[in-house]
Design a protein around this nucleic acid. Structure first.
Lengths: 146, 146
DNA sequence: CTTGAAGCTATAGTTGCTAGAGACATTAGG
DNA sequence: CCTAATGTCTCTAGCAACTATAGCTTCAAG
């Protein structure tokens, strides 16, 4: 049985984060020692690793909650899990597209800036006047949508 | 003079967001009509467009605050503005790199899933066991760092 | 002159944690 | 066995950047 600190170290997750996951019901309530400290077994360790890995891949806690409850019913179809992963992939792809456009525009700004004064700094200029952007694209709605 | 609603529509910013920007001091306090409603002139409209554009490019509100105060002093050197833009570019590039790695791994998961049962769903499997990831990469620290 | 849209303030909620305070538990060294 | 240093406990508040809600007032059109 591991204390919360060892578990955190093993999984690469900070201690308060583990307690937070328990609080929101992603992890079940842990067993307690005589002195009221949380103790974790192998199952909890696997579950936390799953969560951590999914977070690393950018899944939201809500999506992870769904994936976990799916993985608890191994007999069912994996269509739902596949759908969640596909949605995440689509999300990542759309963010990639947006970031790529941002990168191009930022590069244009930075390259043009030759260290003069603010009055003719292309950084300020481009930000002030959208029409100075490359004309062949629209801006993304926002960088990280709701 | 525009009411807050017209201004929002003109700049593509929601009304509560404008009030929020005023609250945190990004926009100056607006003039008020006889009936206490906010009124905006040309200058405010430009300032809001600047903010909106910078947000679209992923600058934080803190960075925008700095850029705005720089643009208010046109005689100074634009080195600071350039540094902010360069930092933002670096940030975008690092996020691009991370997202590209995520995309590859998600694609692997999704492609392998042939619609069987959860018990052998590659989505769940890969998430459960990190060693099933492509062995030639480490995961990014996190998708969007602090 | 009435009705409905748009505006006002103030507060709370969102996501995914992180930081702090102040008290108790455990462990390593002497 | 005692003490000091960690580790853990609960609880609350804070971060970014908004978004939503409630309950009110003001404005513009018919």
């Amino acid at each position: 049985m591991l204390t919360i600190g060892k578990l955190g170290k093993a999984a690469g997750v900070k201690v308060p984060t583990i307690r937070y996951y328990e609080q929101i019901g992603l992890l079940p309530e842990a067993e307690r020692s005589a002195g009221n400290q949380r103790l974790y077994g192998h199952k909890a360790q696997e579950r936390l690793a799953f969560i951590r890995h999914a977070r690393d891949l950018g899944f939201t806690l809500e999506a992870i909650r769904d994936l976990l409850s799916l993985s608890d019913r191994p007999d069912q179809s994996c269509a739902a899990a596949d759908a969640i992963a596909k949605a995440q992939l689509a999300e990542v792809e759309s963010r990639l597209a947006r970031l790529t456009a941002l990168k191009a525009e930022l590069e244009r700004m930075v390259v043009q800036c030759a260290g003069g004064s603010i009055a003719d700094c292309p950084v300020i200029e481009v930000l002030s006047d959208h029409s100075l952007c490359a004309t062949d694209h629209r801006h993304p709605e926002s960088e990280v949508p709701s």
